[in-house]
Every structure is written in C-alpha cells, then in structure tokens.
Design a protein around this nucleic acid. Sequence first.
DNA 1: AACATTTTCAACCGCAGGAGT
DNA 2: GACTCCTGCGGTTGAAAATGT
Length: 282
Amino acid sequence: MSNTIRYNGNDEGAEQRKGPWTLEEDTLLTNYISHNGEGRWNLLAKSSGLKRTGKSCRLRWLNYLKPDIKRGNLTPQEQLLILELHSKWGNRWSKIAKYLPGRTDNDIKNYWRTRVQKQARQLNIDSNSHKFLEVVRSFWVPRLIHKMKDNSNTNTKATPPDLLGPVLQDNNFSPDCSNMDFSTSMSVDLKKNSQFMESDIETTCSLYLDGSRGSSSQCVSEDYSSFPCLEEEYMVTFMGNSDILALQDCHVADSTYEDDVTQDPMWNMDDIWQFKEYAHFN
DNA sequence: AACATTTTCAACCGCAGGAGT
DNA sequence: GACTCCTGCGGTTGAAAATGT
C-alpha cells in the first residue's frame, strides 16, 4: 500500500491521493462531516478540500472515523453471532454487521477470512460446506459458549474449566451438543434482557446459549435451524441494537477478553486433531 | 539481533442497483 | 428506454505488525 499520489482519470484531471490516510486528512474529513453531516460523498470530496474520491471518503468515515466504531478483538458473543448469521445469510457482510453495533462489514469480512477460513483450511474443509458448518456447530459454538461461561465465572473463580474436556471425555458424545450442559446464569440474564419483535421476523437472529439433554433439545423452528443443539426454552433472540447492547451489558470486563480469551487461537493442535477425526468419520 | 514468514486489517477495485434527467 | 451519477456491497490486495527461526 503505497502513499503515493496518483492521477485518477475519473476526476477532472485533479491529482487524487490514494493509500493510507494522514492525520490531517482525517481531521479535515471529521470536521467537514461534523459541520455538514455525512452523505453526498462526491460533493463532500470536492468541497472539503480533500484530494480523495467520494468513495474513499465514505469508506474512511464508515470504517474508521465514525465515533461509534468499536476497536479491538471480537468478543465470543460477537463471534457466535457472526457464525450464526453467516450460516443463515452467507457472505452478506453488511447485513451481518447491522447486528453487531460498532463493527463494520469490513471487520466481519476480515474476521471471517483470517480466522474462520483459516480454521477451515487447516481442517481441509471448504468453509462454505455443510461439513464445516457441522464442525462449527459441534465444536466451535460450544467452545465459544464455554468461553463465555468461563469469562462469566472468572469474576468469582480462579480456576478455568477444561474447555473441551467434558465433550471429548464423554464416550457417548454425539456431534450435536445435546449432551452438554451449558446452563449459565448469563443465559438467563440474556433471556431476561432479550426482546422479540415480530415485525422483523425475516431478519431474526437467534443464539442458543444454553443446552440440555434429551431429544427436546433439538430446535424445531426452521428459522433457528442452523445450530439445532440447544433448547428452545432458553433460546435467546437478539433483535435490533437494543438487544445486542443488552447482550454486551452481560460481558465480563472487556479487558479480560483482550488479555486472555480472544488472544488465544480458537483451536489448538489437539482440537484440530479432534476435529479432523470427527470430520473423517462423518 | 537479523532475517523470514505469517497474520492483520485498511484501503482499493469492479460491479450492481437506484435515482434523476 | 437510455444515459449518467451516486452509493453501497463483496472480493481482493498489500503494507505494516506480529511472530517464528
């Protein structure tokens, strides 16, 4: 990515800057938007004095400068949401981003490419395949739920639980998560905080934060079929920003994640070995 | 410490669709 | 309907940072 100034033939012969934005450009753009509002990007580009295209200004604002942009690693909750929504909608990044306040479509796209697809490559599975979805819902989702549980417990307990231990040591383990117990007080809080808006049924996003034994744990609703492992009674439905914010209120301190959980690779080599075994027999 | 390799993520590009003429 | 312009989306790139040897 060079910081050179290159001629852009689309813009009346004016020299257009490309590459990384400078502090001065950021200030100029922020000041302009604070006085004139966002939108009409081509006009903005011309009137603000920036030697950038309207598209470039829009991207810089929406992906970086906008005040409510969240920085730092994605929390386990956000990762769960991405996995769930991607299983429903595929690479509809902007649509997915609407359910993660403060995260941009670029953030989510980058997460998917650098983390999720990397894991798929390591497993030799196509990240868009049914098999990968199966692996995600059988291993990754429970693991994230454990991490959420773990983090909710670290406030009171010093000893972290063995993340995959209960799963891998269970001789009766089956690929769905119906034999795992993920009940947490967090799920109750989330359930309490969640709301359901029927008007937005098409974009319903559900997360399952609690599991229990028995056949009744299979979620029967077609709309919630992506991760059919957890009991409907405890299903948490996130609808719109208020619910996502409610979810975020349930976090333990973010600094805990930053220092600990999200820095870890999602799967270590032992896990990958287990997943490969699983993939082999399915 | 020096170099090589890998990962991250900001920014670019092309395309599609909508609005206006 | 045809054309232009603008906006937004998803795919891709590559410099910088992080990590490994």
